[in-house]
Design a protein around this nucleic acid. Structure first.
Lengths: 132, 132
DNA sequence: GGATTGTATTCGGATATGCGAATACAACAA
DNA sequence: TTGTTGTATTCGCATATCCGAATACAATCC
């Protein structure tokens, strides 16, 4: 479980996290399209689509190839995008665990880390906490 | 490639798309933790963590089990979350295609859909487009 | 009882995002 | 040259998100 750079991962995720952009990526996952193709397929205006495409370009999720007057957009990171889309499509059902299960898991984890000492806490400075 | 509901997928993705929340999910992927555990691990204050956890609960990405005074948070959709984190960790390099490649792909796709007629466009009403 | 601990919620202001309207611009057509 | 087509960009405002400060609240301790 390699640690990821949450800051830069967030930039990518924010790009995904919009209905129109997600729909664009979904369409592009079927094949390259130009802006006017997308205009026909999605409920959004040209200027708006160009804005979203600009964002997707800046995050390097898509790129385009110029074909005379038109720009054909395509997925620049097809695997990443397809895996995410598939996982979203799968839509795993939320599962709940009992308190007992969690206690057991926690105990097991703490046992594993016995050697490592906890870093000393600076004894909880809670801001003010005075009442009127 | 099942079509996803972009609207609801976006709700999930927005929950992921924040550095602190992503870090929380990463920590929880290692095992259940309570809020104070997270306070020690992440550069964020308790109130703020609780706010993010509330959001993650509402999107059903996490849930908690009450253990006396403390709440042990855990991943409610571990597979979804781990797949996303792994894919982000992999960090696929952006690839660019030549105009020729794209033309070929497009041609192949259009050939496949020959039978299906295009829906008639209402001949491009562009807003005003007058100049001073 | 009061104090402490673990956690959640509310409020308010700063900042960011989303989108339409307008416009820019380049290639091409007539 | 003027018009048209395909696309991008800028501006401004409406809305959403973020976070700290303050506070709420329940359980436990003394």
């Amino acid at each position: 479980m390699t640690e990821i750079d949450t800051k830069s991962a967030t930039v990518l995720l924010r790009a995904f996290a919009h209905p129109t952009r997600l729909a664009i990526l979904q369409e592009l996952s079927k094949g390259p399209k130009c802006v006017t193709d997308l205009e026909d397929l999605l409920p959004a205006r040209q200027a708006n689509l160009s804005q979203h495409l600009a964002l997707l370009r800046h995050t390097q999720l898509v790129d385009f190839a110029q074909d005379a007057q038109t720009r054909c957009y395509y997925l620049a990171r097809p695997k990443l995008i397809r895996v995410l889309l598939e996982e979203l499509a799968r839509n795993e059902a939320p599962a709940s665990k009992t308190t007992e299960q969690i206690k057991a898991e926690k105990a097991k984890l703490e046992a594993k880390q016995d050697a490592i000492p906890k870093k000393a806490k600076p004894s909880a400075k809670r801001t003010v906490r005075a009442r009127a």
